[in-house]
Design a binder for these strands. Structure first.
Lengths: 336, 336
DNA sequence: CTGAAAGCGCTTACAG
DNA sequence: CTGAAAGCGCTTACAG
């Protein structure tokens, strides 16, 4: 046994077979007799042998590693998606490499290069958008690429999208139907494709209905931003009585500002709709009506495609439906 | 260029040097002339060459991969720690492999085996406790082991602990000093070392003060459990007026149950102390007084040890101090 | 079904 | 400083 631990050679010697035999014993479907396999497995067990995936990955075209590239890992929604993804990946026999792309602007690119270095089977991009040039390099390296909620398309990659725009429209319709008269939209300055689409859907519907809306957009996508937006909104002389927030974190902040700083009642004085359905949205202090992002379905779609045969005729895009989770932050329309 | 992408051979040919030279160009401190290195780098750049870490890992004793083994990835505290860890690891030039150990009881062991398969430089265990036998195998394979907040010790591994027990005692003292008379302890049935230590500290202090306390312990460590514990606590004829929850999630649930289901005022009627200082604890709806887990410091200690020289004389254990974050959920003692 | 041999992409003594 | 050669641990045609 060398410094690298137990190797196939050790097992081969112990089992009295060739190195090739032990390799075959660990390869499902390889041509090996049941008896030989049994001998090998026994020796492997006593020696504590584990196939070296590094060496295997060097030969085979797959390493079993999938890179997960994301920013703001600790955010409720992001961490839920990451958890679902890593779990599904494991069930499929893969392993997740987590790459934080928080830092600089080029960090998605750096992350992708990192993935190439380890010859990951695939990269799943949750944040940011790599340059076409680089994604082509990935594809050329035999790597699969999944883009979750990105707006641009990249030849050969798989796109998973939610209908954010439709949700924005639904938010408007819901608030209008609840009898809200002065509508507001709260979003951050992050400018991600998802947030923009939600905003645009809301705007579109408002324009179509000939309704003027107030818009607030500042800072990062956080609770604190929601707090300051809520404060600004409630400080207006003509306070809005309905607000769509492009994210739950924002909505929760808006609610807290309205309630605790202005004594505004929800939903009596103000109706609020969020997006994501993070766990906190259903907590009793909030009871927020929001669009639920089906994290499990997204993860399933992703892993299915990654482990599937990916026939070239297959569609390279999937749309996951979002649903409005009705709770108590939107008032019921008064019956006349 | 083979199927595996651009290799050192391709770069060597393009730069007119040997394969060894390109290897040296990518090895800091290797004996190579500045001129040769420049030629290699240029060729590598145009060809888009990335050192294959799989192959490199096969030769060198390090792969640059660190396995992060944890359960309940999407929980606020856990995801914050994971985010800090992955960020620090990246800054140190390492990369994180995320292994979810949610599933079965043996999943920590499976995770460790997975880590061995990929010859990770180290494994950081955040949840569960692997058998001694297996940790020895890891160590024998040259893998370093970090255990965060585990109670048992494993020869050769590095332990990072918080003084949970002291925090439990402080919680008691704080509640007592606030003038609370009927004290309760709320915890889950998870039975992790950290939770038990916090509970024991609280119990000890109460016993030392000759004070009887009410204890509630059920379910998983979640907001929902907090809700049901809060409900049970407030349903008692002699309601407690001070409660220490071993986790913020539990505390938040207790607060919501008390306020929304029983109209109990916090802190006037009930003082609450949590543990973790998750982001939600400081949200305006809660303003929870809690012990802050210094996630950044934990991550720093972990990565420092992993990347350090680990002289055999070094202490293999570090205690990170926890601090009480004073907020509004504990009443100020009435001046006499 | 089985083993000897070649090769994946890299690094590292070994000579020069 | 530089290149030819050996070797890391594995898999996979190739014969038998």
């Amino acid at each position: 046994m060398g410094r690298g631990g137990v190797s196939a050679k050790d097992v081969a010697k112990a089992a009295g077979v060739s190195r090739a035999a032990v390799s075959r014993a660990f390869t499902p479907g390889a041509s090996i007799s049941a008896e030989t396999r049994k001998k090998v497995m026994k020796a492997a067990d006593t020696l504590g042998y584990q196939v070296n995936h590094l060496a295997r990955g060097l030969i085979r075209s797959e390493t079993g590693i999938v890179a997960l590239i994301a920013a703001e890992l600790a955010t409720p929604y992001r961490s839920a998606l990451l958890a679902a993804l890593s779990e599904r990946l494991q069930e499929a026999g893969k392993v997740a490499m987590l790459i934080n792309s928080d830092r600089s602007d080029d960090s998605v690119e750096r992350a992708l290069r990192q993935a190439i270095s380890y010859r990951t089977d695939a990269a799943v991009v949750l944040s940011g958008m790599p340059k076409t040039e680089l994604t082509e390099t990935c594809l050329k390296n035999g790597m699969r690429l999944v883009l979750i909620n990105r707006d641009e398309y990249r030849e050969g990659s798989y796109l998973i999208r939610l209908d954010d725009r439709a949700a924005g429209r639904t938010a408007f319709a819901t608030l209008a139907a609840a009898g809200c008269r002065r509508l507001a939209l709260a979003t951050s300055q992050a400018g991600t494709p998802s947030l923009s689409a939600r905003r645009d859907g809301f705007r579109d519907a408002a324009a179509a209905a000939g309704v003027e809306i107030v818009e607030e957009a500042t800072g990062p996508t956080s609770y604190e931003t929601g707090l300051s937006i809520g404060t600004r909104l409630m400080s207006q002389t003509d306070r809005p009585d309905g607000v769509f927030c492009t994210t739950d974190l924002l909505a929760l902040g808006v609610m807290d500002a309205a309630r605790h700083r202005f004594g505004v009642r929800i939903p009596e004085d103000l109706s609020v709709i969020g997006f994501d359905d993070v766990p906190q949205a259903s907590w009793e202090s909030y009871d927020l009506t929001t669009f639920s992002q089906p994290v499990g379905e997204i993860a399933d779609a992703c892993v299915d495609w990654l482990t599937g045969d990916a026939m070239s005729g297959d569609p390279l895009q999937t749309s996951i439906p979002v649903q409005l989770a009705w709770r108590g932050s939107v008032r019921k329309n008064q019956p006349f």
